[in-house]
Design a protein around this nucleic acid. Structure first.
Length: 723
DNA sequence: GTGGATGAG
DNA sequence: CGCTCATCCAC
């Protein structure tokens, strides 16, 4: 159909047009925007402090800079630079430390001295989260309610699918596009748009690379759609600016990937449009490391394999060559460098897991310290779960997991979150505490440099509320049962086998664009826990591998708390002496945990043989030190009143923890027996072959690519990198 | 279930 | 950089 009289016709059809209404991911008229706040944290501070936007300002976290505004960048400031260097480069720099929690305070605050006491402070990004919320609300506020699709991609980024709104605008402005009879052929081409339809205003237009913008002479509807989209985005940005004072940059293009790259194309306070006719050129001239997913090892691998960093060179490679990266990766790459991306803008962010973690600067050294932090993690996670709808039984995680790092060694323990019980903070805390106990009993646990707690296994549309009994159609119910492997639940949302399915298909892509920012502030009782222990000087903690290798083997394996809940028989705690034994030191520095505060929770008070409390470093817990029954020639002895055993003092912490864990285990076991009687045997049901069909074009990193090629290649290149 | 690896920011 | 957060995979 290329004959001359077709020049009157658009390349696009009525079908393409109408697909806009339903957010089709494949219509060539689709328009996606990515909006990205400029140096967000820095802007937050500038605005909070009421400074002129031209003030050079950097946001500081402890010793380093985490955000630098554009005026400051003009002085050559960047991250990776220290505060002192920054001030040298830019004497007028306004340095602002992030807010922190401090003991006794009920909310985060800006402390002048935060970085001096970083051990007792916990950084809080909540002020930024709150601003982020305002901005999101503002954005939604200036889009038509029925025709908006907004995905929060991170604390300072959103994607907008403008398709439906643009469809409406098109119909208003170009009534000739309205369809006629119902029997109209959807494959028929649209009439051409008027050449006056385009107004790019202040937009940055990406060049086509064809020497000219033939588009004024020959615009088509995709250009018009872009222009309308850009107009909308301009309006959104103006609104943000006017109402909240923030500037942002934006990219407007046919899909998420392109719009995201576009928003970074010209940075502060500008927007970039990538018309379809520019895609080829735009992509070709770009380093592929800018593409999402290719910023890391995969990108390196590709660079090495094809000896280039430019998309241009990759475009010359036939698919077969790209498949050397693995079939799926090759296919993904092949289309991605051609600017293709059909992932949806997802207004709902479906989290699959959430995690709360802390790296301990001075390591922590006792079970109790760990437990205190765990309370905080639990509070944090619980509040986020509430936002996810746990309480309404909309979504609920299936497992809980605790990670622990001791020197170079990491361990993790996890267990199911029992279904029968209501989802409560206390329950989470008990589980987490138990997990920590397992870790402690399992081997050397202190000093601990990292702890994290996570919940996993959130699933779409799973609900287990008895309340909505006859809600379901039989088919749906059956499906729900199947999906959940539980008999006490019912899939509540007859929702979306189709939609859900869809989501699954592009979830692998989608995930790269979803990052929920948690909103909930740590809650009150959490804060009270943040109270510091009496500050005492830290002995230098033993670092890294100094001991790890040898020690760990020196321990005779201790009985585990089995996940089944049955506790192995108590066994005499014996702990061989580690080779090096530092004098009275290392175990008794306080990692500055959140306070030794009376726990609302009943902490099993195992600590008759208690361990570390606030006392300043050298002194030990009461029973041990003063009277040393036996004379150990060299190693300072520790006498455990619980089992009347004498041990090297370097063993004290572990030993004490061991008792603690034992007690806890017993208690939990007992508890289990009493309250747990009618518990559902939860693994009974069919081991559903729940291999959710992994299918479809997935991006690298997901699924199948791992199997063959990737691993080998990774290893080849990192042959010695392994730890 | 456990431990790693990858990746974004 | 150092840290936080999320997801997936192999065993």
């Amino acid at each position: 159909m290329n004959s001359s009289h077709d020049e009157q016709r658009s390349r696009f059809t009525y079908r393409h047009l109408s697909q806009l209404r339903s957010y089709s991911t494949t219509t060539p008229l689709r328009v996606i925007a990515h909006v990205d706040l400029d140096a967000f944290y820095a802007q937050c501070e500038t605005i909070r402090l009421g400074l002129p936007p031209t003030t050079p300002l950097a946001v500081q976290q402890w010793q380093s800079l985490i955000a630098i505004n554009y005026p400051a960048r003009a002085f050559g400031l960047s991250r990776h630079i220290t505060c002192t260097d920054a001030v040298k480069l830019c004497p007028e720099l306004r340095l602002q430390h992030v807010a922190t929690w401090k003991e006794g305070e009920t909310k985060p605050a800006y402390h002048e001295d935060a970085f001096k006491n970083m051990a007792m402070h916990k950084v809080s990004l909540d002020p930024y989260r709150m601003e982020s919320r305002k901005i999101l609300k503002c954005i939604k506020g200036c889009l038509p309610e029925k025709e908006q699709r907004v995905e929060k991609a991170s604390i300072d980024e959103v994607f907008l699918d403008l398709s439906a709104q643009i469809h409406t605008v098109l119909m208003e402005r170009f009534p000739e596009l309205k369809h006629r009879a119902d029997n109209e052929d959807p494959a028929e081409c649209l009439p051409k748009p008027p050449t006056t339809a385009l107004d790019w205003a202040t937009d940055e237009l990406v060049a086509t690379g064809e020497g000219d913008e033939g588009e004024e002479k020959d615009p088509d509807w995709d250009d018009v759609c872009m222009a309308i989209g850009s107009e909308i985005v301009r309006h959104v940005r103006e609104n943000i600016r006017k109402e909240l004072g923030y500037t942002c940059s934006a990219g407007v293009a046919r899909n998420k990937m392109l719009s995201k790259i576009g928003s970074g194309y010209k940075k502060p306070n500008q927007q970039t449009v990538i018309r379809n006719r520019s895609i080829r050129h735009f992509m070709a001239e770009m380093k592929f490391t800018k593409i999402r997913m290719l910023g890391g090892k995969l990108g390196d691998e590709i660079a090495v394999m094809f000896n280039t960093e430019m998309v241009k060179d990759l475009l010359e490679q036939p698919l077969e060559q790209l498949k050397k990266l693995g079939d799926d990766t090759g296919i993904w790459l092949y289309s991605t460098i051609r600017g293709e991306d059909n992932s949806e803008v997802n207004p709902r962010t479906q989290i699959k897991s959430m995690l709360s973690a802390k790296a301990f600067r001075p390591a922590i050294n006792s079970f109790e310290q760990g437990v205190r932090w765990i309370r905080i993690f639990v509070a944090d996670i619980f509040s986020r779960c509430v936002e996810e709808g746990v309480l309404e039984n909309r979504r609920r995680p299936k497992t809980i997991n605790l990670h622990h790092r001791q020197a170079a060694q990491t361990r993790s323990k996890s267990c199911p979150i029992p279904n029968g019980k209501p989802f409560s903070e206390d329950m989470l805390f008990d589980l987490a505490k138990n997990l920590l106990a397992q870790v402690v009993v399992d081997g050397r646990a202190w000093p601990c440099a990292n702890l994290s707690l996570a919940v996993h296994g959130f699933e779409d549309g799973i609900t287990n509320n008895h309340g909505i009994g006859g809600f379901l159609v039989r088919g749906e119910k059956a499906k729900a049962l199947l999906a959940s492997e539980r008999h006490d639940i019912e899939g509540e949302d007859a929702a979306l086998p189709p939609a859900k399915r869809r989501r699954k298909e592009c979830r692998s892509l989608h995930k790269f664009f979803t990052k929920d920012t948690r909103t909930a502030v740590e809650r009150e009782h959490c804060i009270s826990l943040l109270k510091e222990e009496s500050s005492k000087d830290q002995e230098h903690e033993e670092e890294e591998d100094v001991d790890s290798g040898e020690d760990s083997e020196g321990f005779e394996p201790l009985p585990l708390l089995s996940e089944s809940g049955s506790i192995p028989p108590l066994k005499a705690p014996t702990m061989p002496v580690p080779k090096h034994d530092n004098t009275a030191d290392d175990h008794y520095n306080s990692g500055t945990p959140p306070s030794a505060q009376p726990q609302p929770q009943s902490q099993p008070d195992s600590d008759n043989a208690s361990s570390t409390h606030q006392f300043p470093a050298p002194s030990k817990s009461a029973p041990s030190k003063p009277s040393e029954p036996f004379h150990q020639p060299s190693p300072p002895a520790f006498f455990c009143p619980r089992c009347s055993t004498s041990l090297p003092s370097s063993q004290e912490a572990e030993h004490t923890d061991w008792h603690f864990a034992k007690d806890l285990a017993k208690e939990l076991q007992a508890q289990e027996r009493s309250t747990h009687t009618p518990q559902i045997s939860q693994n009974r049901s069919t081991p559903v072959a729940q291999k959710a069909s992994r299918g479809k074009g997935r991006p690298p990193g997901s699924s199948s690519m791992g199997r063959g090629s990737r691993v080998e290649k990774g290893q080849a290149r990192l042959a010695f990198g392994k730890g």
